[in-house]
């Protein structure tokens, strides 16, 4: 019985799950990292508006994590 069930699992399905995990987990990781940087950037901007540009750039730097995730997901597919 066990052997039959295993045989049913499709390799492409596993790849899809892997790709999903790569995107999902890296998305969460970026979110956590951006949360602190974003609030800090808002705090600094509240006092000094000219920091908007720098704040924006620093806030999206952790976005690289999810981009790597996306790349890995595409490679898996």
């Amino acid at each position: 019985m066990v052997g039959e069930e295993l045989a049913v699992i499709d390799a492409s399905g596993m790849r899809a799950i892997g790709a999903g995990l790569a995107i999902g987990l890296t998305g969460l990781a970026s979110a956590i990292a951006e949360k602190d940087i974003g609030t800090a950037a808002i705090g600094a901007m509240a006092e000094n508006e000219s920091l908007f540009g720098k704040g924006l750039i620093l806030t999206v730097i952790p976005e690289t994590i999810v981009i790597f995730g996306l790349v890995v997901a595409l490679l898996i597919k």
Partner: peptide, 16 residues
């Protein structure tokens, strides 16, 4: 406590 916001804002205030 949201220190990221508070401490950064206070640092910006200190720079003034």
């Amino acid at each position: 406590s949201n220190y990221a916001y508070f401490a950064t804002r206070v640092r910006a205030m200190k720079s003034k």
